[in-house]
């Protein structure tokens, strides 16, 4: 899979200046993403979202990003200027955020918002509308014409997330970075949204970087998993083989999960080893 690597990240570091100290949030992360589903799992503060943002150069102003190499297809992301990034963001690499309620413009109809992603392509109004309706169908919205004219507050969380996926896919990017795309959704709705992502990845040959704190979900959904701890990737494995993970942090996380159908009097509590910070 990595022989057709779309995204290559080599020795990525992100540092944040705060009034108190310099925070080294991402410390030498290297990975590739091909036309596959790659999960990045970690607890809060592990740096997983920071990695996603650094790829699109959306790191806040107090942060500095450095990497030995950071390439996407033919584009050198590490060296790309802000102007060059405008042609990458949304068009080649899209990002799906956690909560559609915060990421959608509340005073703009859903269809027009999706249409904005198609600006600058010389499409007529009618063509643009057709494309948007097609996108809404692609995310399995049954009544696209009706949903087109709704405002974000009129759609449910799951529908909002479908709208966001439609918006992100409208410009036909090659890589999708999804940062906790289903964490704000109910479990049954989550499955529907994942099924849509799954289908789009396989039919359109997209690469998907799936950032999540949910180990179980990533193991069942993705092809490969990267486990982050304190700004580093401590382990990488095939998702199906996560149960055989070697790193004590991964094993500890798995053991601390309550599971249906496997009742234990006590859950194992993760004992953090300072050595993991360097391993």
């Amino acid at each position: 899979m990595s022989d057709t690597a779309q995204l290559l990240v080599d020795d990525l570091h992100v540092r944040f200046r705060t009034p108190q100290k310099l925070v080294h949030a991402v410390r030498g992360v290297s990975f590739t993403v091909g036309r596959e589903k790659v999960g990045i799992v970690g607890e809060s503060g592990s740096g997983k979202s920071t990695v996603g943002r650094a790829i699109l150069k959306l790191t806040p102003a107090n942060g500095t990003v450095s990497a030995a190499r950071m390439r996407f297809q033919d584009i050198d992301l590490a060296a790309a200027s802000e102007t060059a990034m405008l042609k990458v963001r949304g068009r080649r690499i899209s990002m799906i955020m956690q909560d559609p309620r915060h990421a959608l413009d509340p005073v703009m109809r859903v269809g027009e918002q999706i249409g904005e992603a198609l600006d600058g392509r010389g499409l007529s109004r009618a063509e643009r509308r057709e494309r948007v309706l097609g996108m809404l169908e692609a995310v399995h919205i049954r009544a696209p014409k009706r949903v087109y004219d709704l405002y974000p507050h009129e759609v449910s969380g799951g529908m909002g997330q479908r709208v966001m996926i439609a918006m992100m896919l409208a410009p036909e990017p090659d890589l999708l970075i999804a940062d906790e795309p289903t964490s704000a959704l109910d479990v049954t709705v989550r499955m529907q949204v994942l099924a849509i992502l799954d289908e789009l990845v396989s039919t359109r040959g997209l690469g998907l970087m799936f950032i999540s704190h949910d180990l179980n979900l990533v193991a069942s959904f993705c092809d490969r998993v990267l486990i982050m701890y304190a700004g580093r990737i401590v382990e990488e494995c095939r998702a199906a083989a996560l149960g055989e993970a070697q790193h004590p942090y991964t094993r500890g996380l798995l053991a601390s999960l309550p599971r249906i159908g496997e009742r234990r009097a006590r859950l194992e509590v993760l004992k953090r080893d300072p050595a993991w910070l360097e391993a």
């Binding site: 709705v189 099924a195 799954d198 179980n216």
Partner: peptide
């Protein structure tokens, strides 16, 4: 709650109420 299952998820893909 048991995790992602492609076959089951595909079957349930149709939207719920808006």
């Amino acid at each position: 709650s048991l995790g992602y299952d492609r076959r089951l998820a595909r079957a349930g893909i149709e939207e719920g109420p808006i």
